[in-house]
Design a protein around this nucleic acid. Sequence first.
DNA 1: AATTGTTTGAAACATACGTTTGAGCCGGAA
DNA 2: TTCCGGCTCAAACGTATGTTTCAAACAATT
Lengths: 224, 224
Amino acid sequence: MAQSDTVDRILDAAEELFAERGFSETSLRMITGKAGVNLAAVNYHFGSKKSLIQAVFARFLTPFCIALEAAFDRLEAETAPKPPDLESVLRVLTATLVEMPRQHDRSIAIYMRLQGLAYTQSQGHLRRFLEAEYSHTFGRFMRLLKNATPELSAVERYWRNQFMLGATAFTLSSSDALTEILWNKLGVETPNEEIVDQLVPFLAAGMQAHTVAHGNTGNSDSGA
Amino acid sequence: MAQSDTVDRILDAAEELFAERGFSETSLRMITGKAGVNLAAVNYHFGSKKSLIQAVFARFLTPFCIALEAAFDRLEAETAPKPPDLESVLRVLTATLVEMPRQHDRSIAIYMRLQGLAYTQSQGHLRRFLEAEYSHTFGRFMRLLKNATPELSAVERYWRNQFMLGATAFTLSSSDALTEILWNKLGVETPNEEIVDQLVPFLAAGMQAHTVAHGNTGNSDSGA
DNA sequence: AATTGTTTGAAACATACGTTTGAGCCGGAA
DNA sequence: TTCCGGCTCAAACGTATGTTTCAAACAATT
């Protein structure tokens, strides 16, 4: 067994098991069993289970954020000096997501589910880690969204951002289960690429829904 | 301590702790500690932790579904013989939801979060329980949605339903935290009623977004 | 007051977990 | 060959979990 083959085998197994069972429900013994390595290897190479979880996210999130920033660069260059419109921003995001993990021949669903779990399962340390590590890219995305929806008040944009986030995280985090249910019901298979094809127009339309006449707040201010 | 006060105290504590920490992360000792009852009481009254989880859901979901069915009855009577339009259906749902837990003086967020957890955390037994117990009301809601969106294919409707569910569950489940963040940022308070006022147009617009031209599936078929 | 069935209480049970230990293995440098 | 650092391994550690036990307390009925 070559040098640090062990590290990658652990990450592969953990990634898969975390995605399908959650963090607390996945024991180190399951992971090392699946990886075919010794139990102690996790604590030797990663220090703790928490660090393992963070390492799993770092392995796919770091290259993803790099690719995403590059894609944003390209998009903004194309549309300059005008800011990119909403659907373009969303499409760049989902396209980068869908094309990312081909290298590792893994279903995107795994990473989507992990991303969803990051929001859903408490895991305070994970939230802090992601915030510290990837807030730059996240903030840039938020700024693009703001420029793409100038007609919204700050309050409206804030809540609609949450709606988008929810629809995305929630759906993608259970995309495998949902796809299977649909298969049993209608006999139709929906690859993840198609789910996001459905998702983008839904989100764009929701964001641009006619504003509800309410007694609140002036126009456009802070981001989200 | 009156007759089965214990049962209710356990349910109250469990409800709150499950909502804020998840199922696996909440131990029976935390629950009985918070409830001020003996550890063994849970297994005595409920049989197991799994049954406790189901009981927590049953206590709020059963009256909610009854209220919802009644509200649907009224709505369909009003609009007969035409089926109610999409926004009416959504508004009836959210209104019932918002008005429900006044009795117990508990934030709706708790129940929303529980509902979200039911989807997110694996917990196969819970999914089976909810399916067996509440599929009738859920199915009726789906049928109303179908009649309100005849232009959608079955596949599109299925996925857009999930998007709606996600946006709703995700947002409302953290509505307290999100409201506080917004207050700190813009100095604006958003009561839950107003959140759903923002949510309904978002969902309705998303549901009715122009269909994406894709190579799949004919038109309207089974429900979802 | 005695008896019955139900509910509580403190303690223990068996199991699973994350983590630590220390002896052993192996490959490259001296 | 000897030595040494990185790595693996089986075993154990301490702790936390869900569940069970059984005696004591209680409420209601006879």
